[in-house]
Design a protein around this nucleic acid. Structure first.
Lengths: 201, 201
DNA sequence: GATATTATTGAATACTGATTCAGTTATCAT
DNA sequence: ATGATAACTGAATCAGTATTCAATAATATC
């Protein structure tokens, strides 16, 4: 028998993060990833079913971590909780810029071809954000019929688009992360409040 | 001599809009575009230098139109003007959903490989939006040192990310465009005001 | 040390799809 | 009508790259 040497699986994921960041998923060559990871090209296929599977694993790991961190937030005021959630998301990507690049460029592929199992963390994050949104809306409309949920989904999407864009800006400008973060949160909070007000009768 | 039959160039662009919307730029096959356009595959290369050039032409045309429409806006209040600019952008994409899909998926490629000439319309639109932003900031900080421009650029990016996301939502939900549009503008305006206030001393 | 078993490798394979170009067709000028 | 020229076509070419797999290396067990 022979043992597996170290955790090649993780080394491959780390190498892939760099290569994807530099070349983007499509142009990234499996051979480049294997070289960066210091393993033979064929070894990739011992740990992953293919190039797409590497991306899947990368995002799956990211969202699983984030979902747990979000679940640990104990802020009871929904507005503050949402603020913390967005902050967590931002920070995790601001710290790992290679991954952030891949997130911005290729996350949509993850959503396209990952199975439900792999998306669990992602779905949990979306759900937790959504709950905060619904609570905020409810607290402003206590006595009226609840606003259509489609409306809060729309607001959530718009907000999240802003967060995404703030990360994009972070990568291309020289601004300090803290400055970008705070501006993003300021605008996000103002946006939510305005959206909530619009839902009122 | 022989004349060119009709305006194949435009037929190719229209066909490409559909094919790109369905398959995305990468997976879209030149052969599929030529078939959809009802021309031979080789003819594509009489009108464009390659697949990438089709995308370039598509976006270039879009931004050139939009830049002109924006320039025609005569709203003097910068906040209202920005509102109108965003509205124009939204409407143009909401009306042509095939193109909107391609915009959302592949616009970054345009920015990557188009030359300055082709980007003129795009740059003009960004500039006009930026000017509105700066005026808004100036009108709130009349007596103080002007806020760093990096700050307004950041706000502009975040705002634009929200607009983008609203379009994404429009394509996947069943919400009427008018509803999405108005929510997007509500949140955008609230975001700008909050960002401007944050810049004050 | 010998054997069995599993891990690893990277050159060869297989496939895809953009681009080319030799051949064909249409239009114009005379 | 006929030659000249330009437009058009799509099968063949060619390049790039994900994946496979026969060969090799490392470890474990006896």
């Amino acid at each position: 028998m022979r043992k597996k040497e170290g955790d090649k699986s993780n080394e491959i994921l780390n190498a892939a993060t760099q290569v994807f960041a530099r070349d983007g998923f499509d142009k990234a060559q499996v051979a480049a990833i294997s070289t960066a990871a210091g393993v033979g090209t064929g070894s990739i296929y011992l740990y992953f079913t293919g190039k797409a599977d590497i991306l899947r694993a990368l995002f799956s790991r990211f969202w699983d971590h984030l979902a747990k961190e979000m679940a640990n937030l104990e802020t009871s005021d929904p507005l503050l909780r949402l603020n913390d959630q967005l902050g967590l998301f931002f920070d995790r990507l601001a710290v790992n810029r290679d991954f952030a690049r891949t997130y911005l460029r290729d996350h949509h592929r993850f959503l396209e071809f990952a199975d439900l199992e792999s998306k669990q963390g992602y779905l949990s994050c979306v759900e937790q954000g959504r709950n905060a949104f619904l609570e905020i809306a409810a607290s402003h409309n206590a006595h009226e019929t609840p606003p259509g949920n489609e409306s809060t989904d729309l607001s959530q999407s718009i907000l999240f688009g802003g967060v995404r864009a703030s990360l994009e800006h972070l990568l291309t400008s020289e601004l300090p992360a803290a400055r970008v973060r705070s501006r993003m949160l300021t605008m996000a909070m103002a946006g939510i409040l305005a959206a909530t007000r619009e839902n009122e009768p």
